[in-house]
Design a protein around this nucleic acid. Structure first.
Lengths: 340, 340
DNA sequence: CTGTTAGCGCCTTCAA
DNA sequence: TTGAAGGCGCTAACAG
């Protein structure tokens, strides 16, 4: 007896036709004031709640934007998400988030899930094997934004200038006289990793140097195994005198290794890290950091979606936004010591 | 010309009827092997992908579970989510996450969103004003699990034993001779806050003491303003000699304040915090911490959903799982000094 | 301005 | 085992 109330019930109760009820509820087309009043009241009275699924089926849209990240536990994403969410909410969209764990398979199936649910837009973060073709193709079907990952001509994206960032960080360390500089960054087959390595290399080239290849640790595993990577690096006879840690979870592992080996920062080892974390702000010494504005990243991603939503019918607008990094000087870097 | 391909197209291509195609695709009812083969091939050939929305409309379900958290940036949630996700994926469900920012209004509208999209289950984290009635009512309509928040008789939930945790932490500090102990925890109107305060009080009572009321800081704002709260506490003539920080973001603020005031840990001030963070493991000194198993929390939440899914038709099974905390002794607590 | 009608794509009886 | 038909709840197009 407590059947769900449909728009049909509302129409009957309000004494109008189904079509009028729909128009009144959606304020679409021409409807009389009294019709609107009657329908609105009937709806409230009956506790009518529109069926989003049925609506999506008709309109082929849903009012939700999907966002895929590789790792929800990464606090950087959390802030980006929050910023994007705010923008979307203001525009009447809801943001739903899912986790790819950077696995291509999961990403594929989640894209399918979202698409099947008629999301009105898709924001895709970095993922194992970032195929630009996939994004271009997807971009032809619905608004897509690549978040700090590779994307082709036909697709929009916002990306952080990791190249310039790594370049600047490395220059800074080289200026302090370090030569044995280690770089730790997640997967080298991701755009973020590639760019960072390129920037790192460039800084060396500028001075006619070449970085020691075995000081670059950019395996997929670098993230999880920062500690053991750092331990291995520190046990070299000619150990690195500086560490550049370009991944959120890497700093912790490196600091742990440094402590474990009985070294001091910045006395024995200089350290630079990505920096929007409690750890880099509060560690003793505080950690010199490479930062960028996460709110801007999130907001821009939303904007790019909006732009595509607007000119949905026309040529898909592909646009690229680049966010600059900033080196925050703190206490964790010093001149190279003349020992060993 | 490149119209979407529906099951109807598949049926035609396979030379069977629409109904048979549906049955073949879903392996439901009786279908001949050859029909299955023909349909399967036709589907692949045409690149058929079932329309999730249309399917949901018919079946009134979706294969997705919704999860609402108050703050995606909280790394504790991230880990819980990951654990739950793994469990759901193994069972063929997808997990979609959204952010309430602990605002009742957002929560309401997101619940509505999820429900309207026919989620097969809902997991709800803490939120401003946790109305048990709401959960009970919701629970009658679909599988619901309360995550560390208050819930009524008819609802399932998994919760951490914050009472026992706070009790143990406080006992530990009292045993070290501290009497002026400060407690900082998020909102006192949430279950988590209430339980912690109760445990804290209980520890004092056990020794015939009463905690100084102004040393309990549990405003909604405590999270964001841990730094200023701690500064204010430390500027008392009779300042606290120990801080119990029961919120993920609180420790950072407190440590900052302690440093700012020129105090040392644990010499001048002892500190206990929630502990699954880089900061508490790597700070010098390392921070004595109250921990619990986040994977268990996530997994249990999923299990409780599954149970309700199973006996969907029968009486809704309400169950409560309690996860115990554990006090990890590290370096940040010491005996009270005889100064001041 | 309003009522009627026709599906969106799918699943699921009901006969055959 | 299969085909045909009837909706799920809603919106959009078309007459009135």
């Amino acid at each position: 007896m407590k059947d769900r109330v449909t728009i049909r019930d509302v129409a009957r109760q309000a004494g109008v036709s189904l079509g009028t009820a729909s128009r009144a509820l959606n304020r679409t087309g021409r409807v009389s004031e009294e019709a609107i009043a009657a329908v609105t009241q009937a709806a409230r009275q009956l506790g009518y709640r529109p069926d989003a699924v049925a609506r999506s089926m008709r309109t082929r849209s849903s009012g939700v934007i999907g966002l895929l990240v590789s790792d929800l536990a990464n606090p950087l994403y959390a802030q980006i998400i929050t910023a994007a969410e705010t923008a979307f909410q203001a525009a009447g969209y809801s943001l739903l988030v899912a986790n790819t764990h950077s696995e291509r398979k999961r990403e594929t199936s989640l894209i399918e899930l979202f698409r099947g649910r008629r999301v009105d837009g898709l924001i895709l973060g970095p993922c194992e094997k970032e195929s630009p073709e996939l994004l271009e193709q997807l971009s032809r079907e619905l608004p897509v934004v690549a978040l700090d990952r590779e994307f082709g001509q036909g697709c929009s994206g916002v990306q952080v200038d990791h190249y310039a960032g790594a370049l600047q960080a490395t220059q800074y360390v080289l200026n302090l006289g370090h030569t044995r500089v280690a770089l730790l960054t997640p997967a080298s087959d991701l755009r973020t990793g590639k760019e960072r390595i390129a920037g790192f290399r460039r800084a060396f080239e500028e001075r006619g140097l070449t970085p020691l290849p075995n000081l670059i640790r950019a395996e997929q595993s670098a993230m999880e195994f920062a500690f053991s990577e750092a331990m291995s690096l520190l046990s070299f006879a000619e150990r690195p005198t500086a560490f550049i840690c370009l991944g959120t979870r890497i700093l912790a592992g490196v600091l742990q290794a440094i402590r474990h080996m009985g070294h001091t920062v910045p006395g024995d080892v200089s350290v630079i890290s990505i920096g929007d974390t409690d750890l880099s702000r509060l560690f003793s010494p505080t950690i010199t950091s490479l930062n960028w504005d996460l709110d801007v990243v999130g907001t821009c991603a939303a904007q790019l979606i909006f732009k595509q939503l607007d000119r949905k019918s026309q040529t898909p607008s592909a646009e690229r936004i680049v966010v600059k990094t900033q080196l925050i000087l703190r206490e964790s870097c010093g001149p190279v010591t003349t020992q060993a």
